[in-house]
Design a protein around this nucleic acid. Structure first.
Lengths: 207, 207
DNA sequence: TCTGTTGCTGACCGTCGGGTCATCTATTAC
DNA sequence: GTAATAGATGACCCGACGGTCAGCAACAGA
């Protein structure tokens, strides 16, 4: 018997979920949802498959936890900055919003964006959650910023104002483009997003 | 013996591939790639699984055939219209390009767009084919239209001209948005795309 | 040091679905 | 009419993977 024998495992009830979730994010990023084996996630987290099933009832459950974990914090930050900032609409878009927009393509959210598109239709309840907690909130925030711009006389009326989706288009396109075509022709997402938002503001601004 | 007995099957070597591909498109649209069973595709095509494997070596092979079949014709039409039309850059964007852009969200291409995003990373050779035959051609066409606009004095220099992706952003966003969130908040893709392109032109146009 | 608790393990099970192939039958050639 | 060809069938095979569970080992309390 080796006196220095290491224990086979530590009991770490508390940190397991986070470790597993983050291992899962890596695995999903590499292989997508279906092709990812639960066993592989467990190994990445340095844990047995059985333990994983102690914290997450099913693979789908794990997937949902991953999405919730890595998206919520980001969007909440943005929402809060809309509510608390006293910047003009234009300065809000050029400041906090632009920072947010540029950060997405570099964050884990970029992976989840693709996963949502890929897996969404098979997980309607996840889409609903995503809608309620992320998209409708974000859209609402943008709408209120744009509306304030109009009522303050900064922005003119424009059909585009009905479509706040416009503002996040370059983010979505950058993220997807680079995940698919980076090897063929990389898209400089910072510059793309910045030019796009500049032009957007220019085109709705009262001169 | 019934004299009117129908034969159990007809031999229809030539039409089988197309029938199978189109059944596969339907199936993929409903369930995505992985969740679609080859057996189900075969049944939809009114054919046995064995026969399907006579025309397509593997499921992946079938998937590739579907993508090739339904995307190529659309993009080729667009490319050709760039080459043959003698419209001004602006009128080209407002005419043939707008028609094309609006048609995508209503065509089977909308489904393939999602499938490419979902499955692309697992099928690099398919992405390469898609890049060569669809994206780089389309991008090239847009670049040449925009460049002509500049050299003819219609359009001013603008950072946006470096990113022809801008022009197809609303198409991509519409398509994905409605596939995910139609039940929550439908996006009117015709109006979105049209407003977007209007503003785009306005913002780069020499006045 | 003993004992109870519980976090944790990994061998195991059942099902599902991609892919095969021996066989059949519609069609063609003569 | 008959034989030869090749389109078409569907029962079957088998590896993979989600999910389970009986027991093991770390830790806490006394």
């Amino acid at each position: 018997m080796n006196l220095m024998a290491k224990p086979k495992f530590k009991r770490r009830k508390h940190e397991r979920p986070a470790e597993i979730t983050s291992a899962a994010l890596d695995a999903f990023a590499e292989n997508g949802y279906t092709a990812t084996k639960v066993d592989d996630v467990a190994r990445r987290a340095g844990v047995s498959k059985g333990l994983l099933y102690l914290y997450f009832k099913t693979k789908e459950d794990l997937f949902k936890a991953v999405v919730r974990n890595f998206i919520s914090p980001r969007i909440d930050t943005l929402i809060q900055s809309v509510e608390t900032s006293d910047l003009s609409a234009e300065n809000f878009l050029r400041g906090p919003f632009l920072v947010f927009a540029k950060s997405v393509p570099k964050s884990p959210a970029r992976i989840l964006l693709r996963l949502m598109i890929a897996e969404g239709p098979k997980h309607p309840d996840l889409v609903s959650w995503y809608w309620d907690n992320v998209v409708s909130k974000g859209l609402g925030a943008l709408r209120s910023v744009l509306a304030r711009g109009v009522s303050d006389g900064e922005f003119r009326q424009s059909a585009l104002l009905e479509f706040p989706q416009t503002l996040i288009s370059p983010v979505i396109v950058s993220v997807l483009w680079n995940q698919l075509f980076e090897r063929h022709e990389k898209l400089d997402s910072d510059r793309f997003i910045e030019s796009f938002i500049n032009e957007f503001i220019a085109s709705i601004k009262v001169t």
